[in-house]
Design a protein around this nucleic acid. Structure first.
Lengths: 254, 254
DNA sequence: CAGAACCATGTACGGTGTAAAGGGTTTGTT
DNA sequence: AACAAACCCTTTACACCGTACATGGTTCTG
């Protein structure tokens, strides 16, 4: 149970680590493990057991060094978290290849779906992606990938960035809801269905007259989110967002 | 440095606390402090020093009880966090009053701006709002408030919920970027401007040929976000999103 | 007035991140 | 060849965290 804050620590130090500029010394004994091993181990732990299972001692043990040897390779935990985020901010081997389509809408849809898959594969990123961006090579590559989808449409640089940011933020929020229904909470060991089932008797005892609209919408939405397809909300929001962007882009083109 | 996870603990227990159903006993001595005192103290600490400063010991001390007496009032920290979220999910006295406008667009804009202010006032909510919803009275009231803006437009219940969710997710993401520039990071004590200034020399040493689009857009966007007005991205995204929703709503109306 | 019920507390345990100091091993310099 | 610098790794220790457990007061009920 540790609040994990990305984007901390000495910002230059972490950049040097991200871009491989921290040349390891020539003098002493060779390191038995590399930085990449530590990061990979930490990612594996986070993927399997959630972010709260990632501790410096645990990561050190996973790669076979003593707890404090961790600090030989990484300045601290904050930097490790940044490195983890950048490490997974890259496509997986089984990802579909991007469409070389001329329709920006198809390209942006693909960007959104790629982000969607990314977050579902590494849900712990959702807990970390609340602070400063990690300007590592993979993160920048992902940024480039997203920007390419809106390049050449007549948008200014700022408009391009804002467009991509809005899309990324939307996916972030949508996948948060989806991850809820899909995963079993590794801490409570309670599935989303059980959660709804547990609280439902209590909810029925409440007086909903102060909430007329919510009491009409809530149960329907709750049922849908509880057992339904969260991908539906994703598609709905994505379509609305792209509709709005289309108006803007076509307005600029003329 | 503690990961704070909202929406945990016994879900019914926390609901009882949220809705005031946990009747305090009649027998023993009267409690010197109430649940609301603990929650208020915790919120004050989080507002002032960030979420990582909120510990059970610290909260207990703030209200003048011993560390373990905390658990007389709250089952555990997870429940406290839920209570904190719901406690702030209500308007402040100096909030502008909602427009009684017939234009849903004006109403939704107001909803978005209210959310925006909410997150800026309590940025720590961003760190907590990643898990299950807290179905407390204030949270439900906020949900009702948002839903009212899209009521009577001919949308189905599910569509209403998805619309509100998309809007909330967008604001969440946009304010995350804004909070970055506005606040001084309470942990590093480094402002956003200083952060950019520190990393800029390093960024100039990188080879950007693999990132042609990002290298064109990034510096412009970085400068804008670094010293510019993040509210601009908020307005841009909000306008695009509302444009897209307008298409859908007007399509359904006919 | 007895006892149940309740609030509050002290102690203790296992966990966290990491500061500080020291031992071993390799390499560059003389 | 000898030495010192540089580096990896380790041990010990500290302050903090959430909270289980046992105990001691206080107040209301029967």
């Amino acid at each position: 149970m540790t609040e994990e804050i990305g984007g901390r620590g000495d910002p230059v130090k972490v950049l040097e680590l991200l871009w491989g500029r921290a040349e390891s010394g020539k003098r002493g004994p060779k390191a038995r493990v590399g930085l990449a091993d530590l990061v990979a181990a930490a990612v594996a732990i986070a993927d399997a057991e959630g972010l709260s299972a990632v501790s410096t001692r645990r990561v050190a043990e996973a790669v076979g060094i003593s707890p404090m040897s961790f600090y030989t390779h990484v300045p601290g935990k904050a930097e490790l978290l940044d490195l983890m985020m950048d490490a997974v901010a890259v496509g997986e081997p089984d990802d579909p290849s991007p469409p070389s389509d001329t329709d920006w809408r198809i390209r942006m849809t693909f960007v959104a779906e790629t982000l969607w898959r990314h977050y579902l594969r590494h849900p712990w990123v959702l807990d970390l992606a609340t602070h400063r961006p990690v300007l590592g090579p993979n993160t920048v590559a992902a940024y480039e990938f997203a920007l390419s989808a809106v390049d050449g449409l007549g948008l200014t640089e700022i408009e391009m960035d804002m467009t991509v940011t809005v899309l990324a933020n939307f996916v972030h929020g949508a996948v948060r809801d989806a991850a809820r229904g899909r995963m079993v909470d590794e801490v409570t060991g309670m599935s989303d269905e059980e959660w709804w089932r547990r609280i439902e008797p209590f909810l029925e005892t409440l007086d909903y007259t102060p909430y007329p609209v919510a009491s009409r919408v809530g149960p329907v939405a709750g049922e849908t989110y509880g057992v339904g397809d969260p991908q539906r909300a994703f598609r709905f929001g994505l379509d609305r967002l792209l509709d709005g962007l289309a108006l803007f882009i076509e307005g600029k083109r003329r």
